[in-house]
């Protein structure tokens, strides 16, 4: 018997001939949010700042200058060519002189100092940005290797809780849920920001 057949046979033996009816799953936890959209934006901001992320708000026409200012604050003097963009980033979000991800080998993205991407959805209650590997968000290594990550979030992408957020994404896309800069609690269970992922996370909230 193959290992597959044997493991499946063991499970069938363990569960017995007369299988119990599968118990019903009651989903009476919250799946919608009664808060206003303005309140959700405030909650998102509060949660992100709690994780030591920086949140900058701007109007739709101010995205590019806000991104540029954010990069300046995070990195000081830098060359725009050190900033790599998700390939689907709208033209009017792009800081001058920055370069688009050209599909080079993933590890070569480590040469860039900062990344700018969009998001697929943002979850206010947990301060979570979901990136889905689409052109707007870029491939996964793009939001991982450069040390500074700027994510542009549009107001209508913000939802209240985790169930609403996951309902908006394609399950089979390569998904990354990001809640703050990389961190660890491994030393005396005290949270410290900044390990292997980007040590700086800046969120530009457009509304």
């Amino acid at each position: 018997m193959s290992a597959r057949e044997e493991v499946l046979a063991r499970i069938r033996t363990a569960l017995g001939e007369d299988r119990a009816v599968v118990p019903e799953i009651v989903r009476d936890y919250r799946t919608t949010d009664e808060r206003t959209h303005a309140q959700l934006l405030d909650v998102l901001t509060d949660r992100l700042e709690d994780y030591k992320a920086t949140v900058l708000r701007c109007s739709p026409s101010e995205v590019a200058p806000t991104v540029r200012a954010a990069l300046g604050t995070a990195m000081g003097e830098h060359s725009p060519a050190d900033v790599v963009l998700a390939p689907g980033l709208p033209a009017d979000w792009r800081p001058d002189g920055s370069v688009e991800d050209d599909g080079r080998p993933a590890v070569a993205l480590a040469d860039y100092a900062a990344t700018v991407t969009g998001v697929s959805v943002a979850i206010a209650e947990t301060g979570t940005l979901v990136l889905d590997g689409s052109p707007l968000c870029g491939r996964r290594a793009l939001s991982l290797l450069p040390d500074c990550l700027v994510c542009v979030v549009e107001a209508d992408q913000v939802v209240g809780g985790v169930p609403e957020g996951l309902a908006r994404v394609d399950p089979t896309a390569p998904l990354t849920m990001i809640s703050g800069p990389s961190a660890t609690s491994d030393i005396e269970l005290q949270r410290v920001e900044g390990v292997h992922g980007p040590r700086t996370l800046i969120v530009v909230l457009v509304h």
Partner: peptide, 21 residues
């Protein structure tokens, strides 16, 4: 587990994605 509202990173992947990972 860590007493956070959400952990910093959760990765979800399905099989192989061409050009990513």
């Amino acid at each position: 587990s860590t007493g956070e509202r959400m952990n910093p990173y959760t990765s979800l992947w399905t099989g192989v994605t061409p050009g990513d990972g």
